[in-house]
Nucleic acid binder design. Structure first.
Lengths: 238, 238
DNA sequence: CGACGGATTGAAGCACCTCAACGGGAGTGG
DNA sequence: CCACTCCCGTTGAGGTGCTTCAATCCGTCG
């Protein structure tokens, strides 16, 4: 992201955020050591296993979160059980951009996850005192908005093949292994389907088709490799 | 919107924003008279006829806008001509929430429109000096994000009937006439279709079906009345 | 009045869905 | 170590909701 902080000075060894793997990515990245220490005071680290609900839609928005490891999904259920996933939350991402009293979406752990949990009041006090944090939050919101609108184009106008290709592009940017070049599917086919507005069977068929067309290569049920990047990019655009 | 300013004190008669119909709704609403005057200095009022482009996707984001009258659409075109409208911008809404160097979407006038045009630099300077403005901008971004995610549910999981019903609900909230109870379609069927991820013919058929089912009553090609609000709400939810 | 553009209606097609069967890896227990 | 089961993913066959193509309607404007 354009506003990501440059490399930060190292923290003292006894700093509560010393070990944080996502300090540069997260909103906290704009705070210097002392302010960050105060920020982390009263913001416990919480853990959730895969499948657990972090916040439920219509719950009071009493806390906001910063994800340090794992993966969350943001979803909404229609009365008859249809589900739409509005987005995934990766390490470094922020959960809780809202001015409403209640959350509009449910957040659930897709994989075992750890989060910094900030009481809303604590968080708002800090924002008021640290303009840099507020600016960063705005930048995060603007970025999320752009991503959501991009997803609107996908859901409104792209074919199943284009949706899958776009999704694989996204995973390539977010989930590639530095060492092996493999890219992970960190979520189930059901989650992919509900994110792309398709059915599980269609997701499976389209992935198979890309494999047969030698655009990708499956290296396991939960991982793949891109064989023909150019073709993938073409397919994603329509 | 939850953060809308309460009724504001009246401005002096010679204030450039004295006549502004949307001062309470717009982001400017948080500024007091003197600051607002300075803000409006160097922010000319511009006019666009229906069909004109206000900003083109990939244009440098050199300006941001506040819509005072008319209607804009935010859209994106795929290479082969498919179009998705990501949202409509109503009077009082803000155009230009981004931290990127370029706009991601094209904004075009649907109806003759007037806007306050703020050079980006002027705007950013003002934000830095007025925390209330920055907070308001964040609130606006959070609100837009929630709306976009709601639209993701519609595009990803709702049927054509549900999409149309949801859309009519939205119009009922935004475009109803106080006097006649009539609600306007301020945009063409093509715009509705590209907003809802449908084809023109489907939009037309679904509207006709709602008319036949006595849920709505067409009072012209560009306006309607809700006959059975309860049924409409049911249909919108699935 | 005639022409044009947007909206409506009709008929046929297709992309994706639904229903159903099958496959294979992980965990369990003998 | 294998047999069993469970769950998730894959594959197949048929159905359907929306699209596509095409004709017609209707209000507006020259």
């Amino acid at each position: 992201m354009a506003t990501r902080a440059a490399t930060l000075p190292e923290l003292e060894h006894d700093h509560p955020c010393f070990d944080c793997a996502v300090r540069e990515l997260a909103v906290c990245g704009v705070l210097e050591s002392a302010a960050l220490r105060a920020f982390k005071e009263g913001a416990p680290t919480v853990r959730h296993d895969a499948g657990e609900t972090v916040v439920f839609e219509a719950d009071e928005a009493a806390n906001v979160y910063s994800l340090t490891s794992g993966l969350l999904r943001l979803s909404k259920l229609l009365p008859d059980g249809r589900r739409q996933i509005a987005g995934f939350i990766f390490p470094g991402d922020f959960l809780g951009i809202t001015m409403e009293e209640e959350h509009a979406f449910t957040a659930e752990a897709v994989a075992p996850s750890t989060l910094c949990k900030f009481p809303r009041r604590h968080f708002d006090d800090f924002i008021a005192k640290h303009p840099a944090l507020e600016r960063r939050l705005y930048a995060v919101a603007a970025h999320e908005l752009a991503a959501a609108r991009q997803q609107l184009v996908l859901l409104g106008r792209k074919t199943a093949t284009e949706r899958i290709a776009s999704f694989l592009q996204m995973l390539a940017g977010r989930c590639h292994s530095r060492t092996s070049g493999e890219i992970a599917f960190p979520m189930s086919r059901a989650d992919i389907a509900d994110y792309l507005g398709l059915r599980i069977e269609t997701v499976s068929r389209e992935i198979s088709a890309l494999k047969v067309a030698r655009v990708i290569q499956l290296t396991g049920r939960q991982s793949f490799r891109i064989v023909d990047r150019e073709r993938l990019d073409q397919l994603a655009e329509g």
